[in-house]
Amino acid sequence: MTALNVAKVFEGLPRVWAGFLQDWDRTMRSRNHPDTTRYNYELAAAQLARYQKEHSPDIDSDAAADDPTLVAKGQVEAFQAWVVETRSASTTLNMHKALQQFFKWLVIDEEEADRSRWTAPASPRPSRSSSRCSAMSTPRRSSTCVRERPSRTCATTRSSPAVVKTVRPVGSSILTPGRRS
């Protein structure tokens, strides 16, 4: 697989943010994270840094734009709200998970940030705008999809597992032949 150019993510970032992201990249490479994971995680953190500098309405965002250890929970929540408005809820959820990992690394592994300063904001809710279940070709009428096996692609399986219909002859055992419990 061709390696993604992760260094492009760091371009234009303040020196402190770029340094932390390069250190985080090294840590993720040493833990054998896939290139795409590293790229997506670092892109989310870099976008947070750029948001602090260019779009944040928060008075304290100038300090956070220069140093990730000064980012507060409210600033991350404002960033998430901005991402929901400009992109989608699922993109916001992916960025939330990436930022969760970044700040966890910053607090626990690097011991650079104070845990009380950055507590994880609540996870954004996925969008429920579709009136169709991806597993069915008809409009959704209930909160459960009927499928042959559970599927992660079915929007309704997030809250309740898919129903599995199984037909067995009367008197048959679910144990394999020749085995007794």
Rank of each mutant, 00 (worst) to 15 (best):
C133R: 00
C154F: 01
L99V: 04
A18I: 06
R158W: 02
F10C: 02
H96M: 08
A72R: 14
S129D: 14
L93C: 05
L99D: 03
F20N: 01
Q22A: 13
E110G: 02
R50V: 07
W105C: 05
G171K: 09
G12L: 08
A65N: 10
S90T: 10
D109S: 13
P121H: 06
D66H: 13
A45H: 05
Y51N: 09
L175A: 12
T138F: 04
W17L: 07
S137T: 14
R117M: 10
W82F: 15
H33V: 03
R168L: 15
W118T: 04
Q22S: 12
F79Y: 13
A78Q: 11
P161D: 14
P68Y: 07
L48N: 01
K165W: 02
L43I: 02
Q47L: 12
N5P: 08
P124R: 09
W24S: 00
H96I: 01
I59C: 01
A44K: 07
A65T: 09
T37K: 07
R115M: 03
R132L: 15
D35L: 01
E110N: 04
N94P: 03
S129G: 13
S131M: 09
R50C: 04
A46S: 15
T2F: 02
L48K: 00
V16S: 06
V16K: 14
A45C: 11
W82H: 14
R31D: 14
C133G: 05
D62S: 09
R140Y: 07
N32K: 10
T156N: 06
Q100L: 07
P161S: 14
S127H: 05
Q22P: 00
R158N: 04
W118S: 02
H55L: 09
T156P: 00
